[in-house]
């Protein structure tokens, strides 16, 4: 008897709740006789409720049936024979992890450290990883086998490093990148580095000095190597051409002598020459000094070459040593030379 039918009854004034209550009470009283099949074995004895307590059944939402939308090839992995599988043809290219296509019980992710990790199905963490299933060692081997026919053997004449360097003085370095990502391009692949030993290009003293000023820190003194890195163009070929252009340009630029180069001052010089500097003038002034020259410190004339004594040369050498890089030894040398020059012996 449903509540709806009750409401249609002629007994209109009665509230439906009341009726329900009565009905419940009746069932409760009679449960001892015909309600046994509802009871479980371990349930307690019936109780006689003289003043029945009203219990409202908890409203429970019906659980919606789970409609899992399975992919078309659901459980494809079951069809794979683990002992005899041609994996290269099943998984030829890069793809996201697919729990149904890969027959391994891999797990990932925990809520607590001691818990077991989650299974592979619908596991987002597993899908985030760029997989290498298409690049297994046998697959790589097969790729290499395929590529082998396009390769040529290394020239047998270039058997030593010296010969290589002699015939190919210019080294070009580029990088290719292999990804698990869907794209085969990498912006870093455009960068071109060229290396060259300066002994391989003809330079005189002036040209070498000028080249040094142009290339600055691109030159490594230890290995005598010039390194040019170009990355400003979007394509590798453009960068390579640009590097070639730069090399050509700096070479010819270093050989040209401009007019303004004649007006180089002492500060612009690449080497310290003692006889051109104030140090030698000061020494000359001290040697030529007389008490009447009070207040005239430097006379602007270095000593002529023929008047220079060995101790003056030693002093000049010591000064050069210090100016080009001072050390404790340099200073003790300078001290010896200065004592020779300044004091009575």
């Amino acid at each position: 008897m449903s509540l709806l039918s009750v409401s249609r009854n002629p007994l209109k004034g009665l509230k439906p709740v009341r009726i329900q209550f009565v009905w419940n009470h009746a069932i409760r009283l009679s449960s001892g006789t015909f309600g046994t099949d509802n009871m479980d074995a371990g349930e307690e004895f019936r109780q006689l409720e003289l003043k029945p307590t009203r219990t409202r059944e908890k409203f429970q939402r019906k659980k919606a049936p789970v409609h899992m939308i399975m992919p078309r090839d659901y459980k494809r992995a079951n069809k794979i024979d683990p002992d005899n599988v041609d994996w290269k043809s099943i998984w030829p290219g890069p793809r996201t992890f697919d729990p149904n296509a890969i027959p391994i019980p891999v797990r990932q992710g925990r809520l607590k450290p001691k818990q077991r990790a989650f299974g592979k199905t619908a596991n987002l963490e597993l899908m985030k990883i760029p997989t290498f299933f298409h690049l297994t060692p046998p697959a790589i081997k097969a790729h290499c086998e395929e590529l082998k026919k396009f390769c040529t053997p290394f020239p047998s004449e270039l058997d030593t490093k010296e010969k290589c360097e002699k015939h190919f003085p210019l080294t070009v370095i580029t990088n290719d990148y292999l990804h698990a990502a869907p794209t085969i391009r990498d912006p870093l692949a455009r960068i071109v580095t060229i290396k060259l030993k300066l002994k391989d290009i003809p330079l005189d003293e002036h040209a070498r000095d000028k080249l040094m000023r142009i290339i600055k820190d691109r030159y490594d003194e230890k290995t005598d190597t010039l390194t040019i890195v170009t990355d400003r163009c979007p394509l590798r070929k453009q960068n390579y051409d640009y590097a070639q252009y730069l090399l050509t340009a700096i070479f010819y630029e270093s050989w040209t002598v401009e007019e303004w180069e004649a007006s180089k001052t002492e500060a612009d010089m690449e080497h310290y020459v003692w006889n051109r500097n104030t140090s030698s003038k000061a020494l000359a002034s001290i040697l030529n000094w007389t008490p009447d020259k009070l207040g005239k410190s430097i006379f602007h004339d270095p000593l002529p070459e023929d008047k220079l004594k060995p101790e003056h040369h030693a002093y000049g050498k010591a000064v050069k040593n210090i100016v080009e890089g001072e050390t404790e030894e340099g200073w003790s040398q300078y001290k010896k030379a200065a004592v020779q020059v300044l004091l009575r012996q």
């Binding site: 027959p103 391994i104 019980p105 046998p138």
Partner: peptide, 14 residues
């Protein structure tokens, strides 16, 4: 599943 998966892994890794 584990033993199957293990064999499968061994095979695809050569």
């Amino acid at each position: 599943e584990y033993s199957d998966g293990k064999r499968f892994l061994a095979n695809i890794m050569g």
